[in-house]
Simulated assay, not measured.
Amino acid sequence: MTIASTSPYKLASAQDLFALTKPRVMSLVIFTAICGLLSAPGSIHPVIGFTAILAISLGAGASAALNQWYEHDVDAVMKRTANRPLPAGRMDRETALHFGIGLAVFSVVLMGLAVNWLSAGVLAFSIFFYAVVYTIWLKRSTPQNIVIGGAAGAFPPVIGWAAVTGDITLMPILLFAIIFFWTPPHFWALALFVNSDYSKAGIPMMPVVAGRQSTRRQIAVYSLILAACAIAPFMFGMTGVVYGTVAIVLSTAFAFLSFRVALSKTEDPKKMKAEKHLFSFSIIYLFALFGALIADRIILL
């Protein structure tokens, strides 16, 4: 006789656990962390450097898992997130919670014991900021969610820098500022053409609350602040001409695309070419800008 299982829990697959870490988002986190680590003065043993990046990756994965644990109801409503493990019913919430907390604790302890406790402390704060301050507090309560919450994604280069130097100076703060001010134009450009998803889910993204035209103007303003932050390391003599040239050219292009968005009047998501171009370029922008930072560092060695 076969006894049917009465357990309320679902056995999560390795594939779904991996999906819970948001690997596409994690790739940007890993890249900017590596850039922060490689651009820092001094040197770090390759094994310790690898361990630092691993800890940062696990911390980012923990943040993503805790985010999806809390937002399972919202993800179920939105078309682009409905197939994630929790809303699709392939995993129970308790598994996601335990997985997220376990990864978070392990990543911070690993960073502290293998690298240094300053980088571990910043990593712990970044996980807390994303999971609690952004996900639980800001995201459903204010249209400034992305503005303030952008800090969560801006910590990786700071952690990478601190892993090498054991301190935090002006340069990692500027790297933090670049990602911080890049985040609103990047996500608002996306929100402009998936506005109905956020509205349906009751998330007060800027286009939902302030309207598309106000959001477009704010994108243009943030692009100018971003340009100033991106060029600042070169202007302050912290980088060489390679980074400076790339920063000026890319930031000019970013501002141009942002002002095209600001001048756009279309309300039909299918016709929002300017918004889609900016969103796509914003991803290239950040990868290329931080890549130029490393190229510049290699040339100066």
Rank of each mutant, 00 (worst) to 15 (best):
A154C: 02
A255L: 12
R297P: 08
V29F: 00
T169K: 04
H98C: 14
V109A: 11
S13I: 02
A76Q: 08
I127N: 00
W182A: 04
D92I: 01
L250I: 09
L263C: 13
T245G: 14
A76S: 11
E267F: 01
A60C: 05
V241H: 15
K276P: 09
Y243M: 07
V208K: 06
D296F: 07
M171K: 08
V209Y: 06
P8T: 06
A33I: 03
N195S: 11
N195Q: 15
L293Y: 04
I299N: 10
G59F: 00
M235K: 12
Q68S: 07
S63Y: 00
A40N: 04
L226Y: 14
T51Q: 11
N116S: 04
M111A: 07
A228S: 15
L38Y: 09
A124W: 01
M26R: 00
A255M: 13
L123E: 03
N195M: 09
Y9P: 02
I248T: 13
F187A: 03
P41Q: 07
A40C: 05
A114Y: 02
L190E: 08
G121D: 03
G202M: 05
G244K: 07
Q144H: 14
D268G: 06
Y9K: 10
I294Q: 12
G61T: 00
A62L: 06
Y70Q: 14
A227H: 02
A14S: 15
G244C: 06
L20M: 15
W137S: 01
F181M: 02
L66Y: 04
A14M: 14
I159L: 03
F254R: 01
F155C: 01
T245H: 09
P157G: 00
F129T: 03
L38P: 10
S282I: 05
E267N: 10
G36T: 07
R260S: 14
V158Y: 00
G112F: 01
L190R: 06
A151S: 08
V77R: 15
A274N: 15
L113E: 07
T95S: 13
A82K: 14
I179T: 01
S196C: 11
F254H: 03
V164W: 05
F125E: 11
V249P: 01
V194R: 14
Q144I: 12
K270M: 15
D167G: 15
G202C: 04
E94S: 12
M78P: 01
R216N: 02
G89H: 12
H277R: 14
V147F: 10
K10T: 15
L86W: 06
A262G: 09
Y70P: 12
F129I: 07
S13P: 04
R260I: 05
L113C: 11
L250R: 04
P87L: 10
F50Y: 08
M91L: 13
L11S: 15
L118Q: 09
F193K: 04
V164G: 01
L118C: 05
A288C: 06
K270D: 13
I48W: 08
I173S: 13
M78E: 08
L289Q: 08
A60H: 00
S27K: 04
W137H: 05
I298M: 10
L86C: 03
S27P: 01
P157H: 01
K139F: 08
I298V: 15
T215R: 11
I248S: 12
E275P: 09
S223A: 15
S282V: 05
S258K: 12
K10F: 09
K270C: 08
V109Q: 10
L28C: 07
